[in-house]
Design a protein around this nucleic acid. Structure first.
Lengths: 185, 185
DNA sequence: GTATTTATTGAACACCATGTTCATTAATTA
DNA sequence: TAATTAATGAACATGGTGTTCAATAAATAC
């Protein structure tokens, strides 16, 4: 890719991230972004068709770092024991704290509907791929609600953790998650 | 109150409700509301300082119908057994289906952040007042997350129920709620 | 090194939505 | 009947999004 394109794109994403830490998404204007990124208006729209698209790209960047795709050696590990499951969740909390933590904090605090949709998309996929391997049908709880409930609980736990300053250790968070979720599994 | 004021106000709220069933909140314009309600622009702003304020009024109207305030004979019932708790939740699901069901469906489908804030406000208050009477401290789960988790689970269950067409009976919903929640209480 | 392609620029523009103002008119209440 | 209160609509200020285009600068191909 052209060096100019790359620089422009990254400058926009960077500025957008900075601004998100100061203002909620709705209250950030394209004008502010391009002023901060120091690019022309037309340039912005050459890279991103809309502000919402910029948010989308940001979310994809973010979550692709956080939720590993089970592609490589892990593909062999289809039959995991429940210990491995806990390690998986612990791992996610590590990632959440390490990669783009400020950005995630800003987006969660904001609570924007679009962002939450992307977040849920990734969590749903991740939970389905890693936590629902073998399950017996519980009596009272409809399956479709159960799946949803697990994703929702995970998202809610992340939000609570970060609201609290992400002070607790990843291991402890995984522990809490399974304490809440295991009885219904 | 002046008959004119009352009529205008109700006409606006009615039209807003109608429109919410067709379009998401963000995509409804004040112009559409006043066209449908057949009132002047200045009149609209004499009644509601902003579109967001109209949403707020709508939410308050809605939730005040759904979540009963424990004011009258119920004040005596402070020491409820767990059977009464289940009846309480059943009761809420009845209300949700009976009162302004279409409006609620529209607002939930939309998923607007502002609406969800009001929803959570009411749910938090309700759960705190009716479900957290006597509780022993569980070991692993921090109390502040537990409270939040119960509210979130309730909201999520309502959303799932309504997405599914609210086909299930209120009693069944209360059953599901406690099956999910009781293990952590 | 020159030519060609590709990206950036900025200013002007069209568009649309919010919320305000005000003088006029109509309904309500005293 | 007089005084108050509400409704009206058109014009307006403001501020945001996204587009266009001709000019310019940088990157790449030859």
């Amino acid at each position: 890719m052209d060096r100019r394109s790359k620089k422009t794109r990254e400058s926009i994403l960077q500025s957008f991230g900075n601004l998100l830490e100061k203002r909620s998404y709705d209250r950030i204007t394209v004008q502010e972004i391009i002023d901060d990124a120091d690019v022309g208006r037309a340039t912005f729209y050459a890279h991103f068709p809309s502000k919402d698209d910029l948010l989308k790209t940001t979310c994809v960047d973010l979550f692709d770092h956080v939720f590993p795709t089970p592609s490589k050696q892990e593909k062999e590990d289809i039959f995991k024991d429940s210990h491995a499951e806990k390690d998986e969740i612990t791992h996610i909390f590590f990632h959440l704290k390490k990669n783009k933590y400020n950005l995630l904090t800003a987006l969660l605090r904001d609570g924007n509907t679009l962002f939450l949709c992307y977040f849920r998309e990734y969590v749903d996929r991740y939970i389905a791929a890693n936590l629902l391997k073998q399950k017996q049908h519980s009596g009272t709880i409809p399956e479709s609600f159960l799946y949803r409930h697990i994703s929702t609980t995970f998202m809610d736990l992340v939000q609570w953790w970060i609201d609290d300053g992400a002070k607790r250790e990843p291991e402890e968070m995984a522990e809490i998650f399974f304490t809440v979720i295991h009885p219904v599994l």
